[in-house]
């Protein structure tokens, strides 16, 4: 993966310019016909952005920019980016240990000096709360300006996390802006937010890349701390709306139930099983902390068995990763 992207250095200047424009009688913006509307909301609405990867090969079809939001509503035992799970609570542990002096604590808030940061990730490693101080609160417009600058090299964006659907309004604004300039819009979700309550978000989303981490509720709860029922309802809802970009099962030996998950998904999808893309992903311990930090990956034979099972169940687009 490429290094973390520095968020736009002229952001503050742009904000000032925007404020000046707001005060002027001519409100025009080349990127959005609904500029006044969008900006009036966007200006007050921010989301915690962990990072933006200009070019991702693995977050949907073609060349895409990936936007990672901070904060998750579940805590998977195999989480590969545990530092994205929580928002900083300002304990200051990282401030003392930052070798570059890029972090300061004042009024219970950790401030990050991006220009001084050497990206050593010490702050992330020492954080006792699975958070990161290197987060920027950005408006949809600010993120849009960044991703828009990557056109024409990308066909779309994928918003991931953490759990990005914890910010449905923010995403709707971002996606609406993207759609106006022809950028595709995908959601990468753990399915634990009731998406049926956010139809307006889905209207501007091309689809959802949905994790189905386990099927049995007890297995799901042990693995993630979350509720499998919401995921299943989302699965049915998204299938009905033709908004499933792909489904993903991470195979973790001893921790989930991929056979039941494949069968359960197929039951929910019905006829659509043949046209739904299923990705079977090997658990890899890279980046994992805690219980599964030293756990083994499933064998090639195990993955091949599951692929065969998926195909026998009716999936025609199965990919092993």
């Amino acid at each position: 993966m490429s290094g973390r992207l520095s968020l736009h250095p002229r952001r503050t200047l742009r904000r000032q310019a925007f404020m000046r424009q707001l005060a002027s009688p001519r409100l025009e913006c080349p990127c959005s016909k609904n500029w006044v509307f969008n900006m009036s909301i966007a200006d007050s609405l921010t989301a915690p952005v962990n990072k933006i990867i200009p070019f991702s090969l693995v977050d949907g079809p073609g060349s895409r920019t990936s936007v990672f939001l901070q904060g998750c509503n579940i805590a998977c035992a195999y989480c590969h980016n545990p530092e994205t799970q929580n928002l900083c609570i300002g304990c200051g542990t990282c401030v003392e240990q930052c070798p570059a002096g890029a972090l300061t604590l004042s009024d219970g808030v950790v401030a990050w000096d991006k220009s001084a940061c050497v990206q050593c990730d010490t702050c992330i490693h020492v954080c006792p709360h699975k958070a990161s101080p290197k987060i920027e609160q950005l408006t949809p417009h600010e993120v849009f300006d960044i991703v828009h600058s990557y056109q024409p090299f990308i066909r779309g964006i994928t918003v991931s996390g953490g759990e990005c659907t914890l910010h449905p309004e923010w995403m709707r604004e971002l996606f609406a802006l993207c759609r106006e300039v022809g950028l595709g819009t995908l959601i990468d979700s753990n399915g634990c937010v009731p998406l049926w309550e956010h139809e307006d978000l889905l209207e501007v989303a091309d689809g959802v890349m949905l994790d189905v981490k386990a099927w049995n509720p007890a297995v799901f709860a042990r693995l993630t701390g979350g509720d499998a029922e919401t995921v299943k309802r989302n699965l049915a809802f998204l299938a009905e709306r033709d908004k499933i970009e792909e489904l993903r099962i991470v195979v973790v030996p001893g921790w989930n139930d991929p056979e039941q998950t494949i069968a359960g998904i197929a039951r929910v999808l019905g006829d659509k099983v043949a046209t739904t893309k299923l990705k079977l992903i090997r658990f890899r311990r890279f980046g994992v902390v805690g219980t599964l930090a030293d756990a083994a990956s499933p064998t090639d034979e195990r993955m091949a068995e599951l692929e065969k099972l998926a195909r026998d169940t009716g999936f025609s687009q199965v990919e092993l990763r």
């Binding site: 070019f55 090969l57 693995v58 079809p61 073609g62 060349s63 895409r64 056109q151 024409p152 090299f153 990308i154 066909r155």
Partner: peptide, 22 residues
């Protein structure tokens, strides 16, 4: 380029199209 780009040649094609468009 990353060898894994072989799994997503659409992404490479997007880059070629984007580069040639400018």
């Amino acid at each position: 380029v990353e060898p894994t780009a072989a799994n997503n040649v659409d992404a490479l094609l997007d880059v070629v199209k984007g580069a040639f468009a400018i």
